[in-house]
Design a protein around this nucleic acid. Sequence first.
DNA 1: AAAATAAAAGATATTTTTGTCTTTTATTAA
DNA 2: TTAATAAAAGACAAAAATATCTTTTATTTT
Lengths: 144, 144
Amino acid sequence: MFSKTCEYAIRAILFIAHKSENGDKIGIKDIAKGIDSPEYFVAKILQNLGKQGLVQSQKGPSGGFYLDDSCRKHSLADIVKAVDGQKIFSGCGLGLKQCSETRPCPIHHEYKEIKKRLIAMLENAKVGTFSEELEKNLIFLKRK
Amino acid sequence: MFSKTCEYAIRAILFIAHKSENGDKIGIKDIAKGIDSPEYFVAKILQNLGKQGLVQSQKGPSGGFYLDDSCRKHSLADIVKAVDGQKIFSGCGLGLKQCSETRPCPIHHEYKEIKKRLIAMLENAKVGTFSEELEKNLIFLKRK
DNA sequence: AAAATAAAAGATATTTTTGTCTTTTATTAA
DNA sequence: TTAATAAAAGACAAAAATATCTTTTATTTT
């Protein structure tokens, strides 16, 4: 569904959102551990998300990653778009270059509805709204 | 969503189902053209699907690919499983190795419902049921 | 101001996916 | 029974995704 890069991106952002709620900044090592992901790889991903304004960071001692208020309002859809592009939002389920209402692929109509729900889910899910559940261990970002 | 391999696989099978309805056998070149895909690549894919019993073939002059009655009853889900495995059926949306009702990722519950619909769609879609629509140009397997 | 810290930037490596080409085997038709 | 045909099998190539390492830059603390 999502690329690995995108999965890490979402998990990293949610982790940062949670851990930086109190104003702390989180180092890349803690993030990698916190979401069980390859350290250097998430570093690259966050670097990229930073350029796109989806995460904040600060260099130097006591530096790290954090989220400002406006970033907390972003949706998971914003992250997916930033990482994987429009593909899963607008692409054809069977990979046709041209696929539309007037020239549909065999699964176009059903797939459209499913995609609609997926998009709605991603747009409703705001980055800043998961901290409490994470804190209470009702949801998780890694295996154990 | 699906791998390119899987997209080609589905399109190829539907194409063969359509073209072999009357007992004809279809050569790999015609298939590649018919679904606008790299010839040698679909050849490999069909070879693999053949081993799994999802398509029939015959060598030699007047040979080619075709589908018997039992294959026409297979669902798109069968093809997806044969090519991409269980991943999209059972995998976690955020790539967690462990993700379940009791230890869910942040999007587990919503994602589960979406997946349920996707699976239902793929299981309901039988390979043999698209020929008429293809014939009438109501659905398509390639761009133009 | 100097030393230490942590992210940014850039280069490199590995793996997986996608795509291509050549040789072999089976089958049919002449 | 020989020549032609078409898929099977195997080897190879290119591109993309994933992952790692090193050097540089910015910032902070001492």
